[in-house]
Amino acid sequence: MELGRVAFLAGAFATHAVVGYALARGFTDADPRVGLVFGLLPDADFLFPAAWGWPLVHRGLTHTPLFAAAVVVGTYAIRRNRDLTLAVGLAIGSHLAIDSLSPLGIDWLFPVAATAGPGVPVHGPAMTGALWAASIAILAWRTDALRSLRRRVASSSRS
């Protein structure tokens, strides 16, 4: 595999992991590492042998709302924890939302019909930067240490 492709994939994987982590941390009380894992889960299809063919290819079955719904329902059925289930849904949903904007898109209507995305370069430098900035903002908003610092600054400015 060429170096450019490796760098592209590393950036894409890191972005999906960070966005999933940030959403789980920002909007649930679940362990944010759940967001990291489930933000990457759809890309497990890279591990499938090419000989398996459709729909077990990249952007096949694991990149569909049907798969995401099965994972979310399965998580709730096994753990009966709404916070954990929400974290899983946010993380896997973020992956699908990001990839659905790319030129390849995802199959929103699988198994009924194939669809394509609008062609946004979601894994290009500008969108990657925007996704990372939004993730950092969510993490900063939810960071208890930052809230504590703001309170100290506010109380010292009143003195």
Rank of each mutant, 00 (worst) to 15 (best):
L101S: 02
A22K: 02
A91V: 01
H95L: 01
P32I: 03
A51N: 12
R80Q: 09
W54S: 09
S94K: 00
R33K: 15
I98K: 01
R82S: 15
V57A: 13
A70W: 12
V37H: 07
L86K: 09
D31P: 10
T64Y: 09
L23Y: 04
W52L: 14
L84P: 09
A50T: 10
L36C: 06
V72F: 11
A70S: 13
I92W: 11
G53I: 03
T62P: 14
G39R: 06
V71G: 10
H95K: 01
W54G: 05
D107Q: 15
V88A: 06
L23H: 04
G26Y: 05
I106H: 11
W54T: 07
P42V: 03
R59P: 13
N81K: 08
A30R: 02
L109G: 06
I106R: 09
H63V: 05
D107P: 10
G60T: 05
G93N: 03
H58S: 04
G89F: 08
H63D: 06
G89V: 06
V71C: 12
R82P: 15
P103N: 05
V19F: 09
G60I: 03
L40Y: 08
L36F: 10
A87M: 10
G74W: 11
H58T: 00
P55T: 02
A77K: 14
A50G: 11
L41S: 09
V57N: 14
D107F: 14
F27Q: 02
L90E: 07
R80H: 12
V37A: 15
A91F: 07
F110S: 00
T75Y: 08
Y76V: 04
F67I: 01
R80L: 07
R79Y: 11
A68M: 14
T28W: 07
F67Y: 10
A70T: 07
A68V: 06
T28S: 06
L41E: 14
L96N: 02
P55V: 00
D45T: 01
R82Y: 15
V72S: 08
F27D: 08
V37E: 12
T64A: 02
S100R: 01
T28V: 00
I92F: 15
F38Y: 15
L61H: 03
L36H: 04
D83V: 02
A30Q: 00
R33W: 15
G105I: 01
